[in-house]
């Protein structure tokens, strides 16, 4: 770790505390805790408030090879106004796309509060030369991305090259300039909660603004226990440095019930400060309509057919 935190990259020197060994994570107990929080009963006013919050925290995502101008524009319209004609429904936090589609999203979202997030660094594997990944990042930022979702090199991490992973994150952070950096750990490939915790610590100590579970291309993607372990890492980092890092579970979150479960995890692990789109996001492509359907149901008392919700 000397290379990163002894000399330090210019962006980081003087800013961070030295990186200590990460605490171990007990798998059974962590899963049990996440499961116990799934039993919170969220009804009526709590459900409505939670679902509205979930919309405001949503990074509406499309990351397909077939993504086009039309697809991205439509998604942006949905993010600005998730339920046309219903002015009570808030906008989403961001739209998340591939770098080439950033200009289209930027244009479609002009004048709105919705941010443009772009995956970068040779998403989803990250297995390209660092110079290519940095260039990918700069181009996305230059095209107008407000937020960059990078991937770590899991191969390097798993073969023990933690210092290299940390240095690369720091380099991408530098390339981001003013854009916010979300670091995707791809927890489904890390193999243990101990590794999830270690990668979270590396990312935060190397300059991440957010840590994010998954690309959505690997199963399992986000899970409640993985999210809990990352939230606990964020909590320890906050007490060690005073910096509040954001959290983004992504992939596999399809139902309103799941979204509420994630909010419960945040509320009971990190408290009120993190119940805000600046510090918590949900990365999802199909979640929004289920949340809208549940909100309508709370309002009218009956479920509406899915043809009442726009498919984008």
């Amino acid at each position: 770790m000397q290379s990163t935190h002894g000399g330090g990259s210019p962006a980081l020197s003087g800013m961070l505390a030295p990186l200590e060994p990460s605490p171990p994570v007990d798998r059974i107990a962590a899963e049990e805790r996440a499961q116990s929080l799934a039993k919170r009963s969220i009804k009526k006013s709590a459900k409505v408030a939670g679902l509205r919050l979930a919309i405001q925290m949503m990074d509406l995502t499309t990351l397909e090879g077939s993504d086009s101008r039309g697809k991205v524009s439509a998604l942006c319209m949905k993010a600005r106004s998730p339920s046309p004609g219903d002015h009570g429904i808030p906008s989403c936090a961001a739209v998340c796309v591939y770098p080439n589609l950033v200009p289209i999203a930027k244009e479609a979202l002009a004048g709105s509060s919705v941010k443009v997030a772009s995956v970068a660094t040779a998403f989803p594997s990250g297995l390209s030369a660092l110079s290519v990944r940095l260039d990918d990042t700069r181009r996305a930022v230059d095209a107008g991305a407000d937020e960059i979702d990078m991937v770590i090199d899991r191969g390097a991490f798993l073969s023990g090259e933690h210092a290299r992973v940390a240095d690369e994150i720091a380099a991408v952070k530098e390339a981001c300039g003013d854009a916010h950096l979300k670091v995707i750990l791809e927890t489904g490939e890390l193999g243990s909660y101990d590794n999830v915790r270690r990668a979270s610590d590396l990312a935060m100590y190397s300059g991440a603004d957010f840590i994010k579970t998954s690309t959505g291309k690997i199963q399992p993607a986000a899970t409640p226990p993985v999210t809990l372990v990352m939230l606990e890492a964020i909590r320890d980092f906050y007490f060690a440095t005073g910096r509040r890092i954001g959290m983004k579970p992504a992939g596999g979150i399809r139902t309103a019930k799941q979204a509420l479960h994630y909010l419960v995890l945040v509320k009971e692990t990190l408290g009120d400060a993190w119940l805000h789109p600046d510090l918590f996001r949900l990365g999802a492509s199909t979640l929004l309509n289920d949340v809208l359907m549940q909100l309508k149901k709370e309002e009218s008392g009956a479920y509406q057919g899915d043809e009442y919700f726009t498919k984008d």
């Binding site: 009963s41 009526k44 009120d272």
Partner: peptide, 19 residues
């Protein structure tokens, strides 16, 4: 002092309704 100021706030940003 800065360390002492670091605290989590488990307040009412999102309350559970009675169940």
């Amino acid at each position: 002092r800065r360390r002492a100021e670091r605290r989590l706030d488990f307040g009412h940003a999102w309350d559970y309704a009675p169940a």
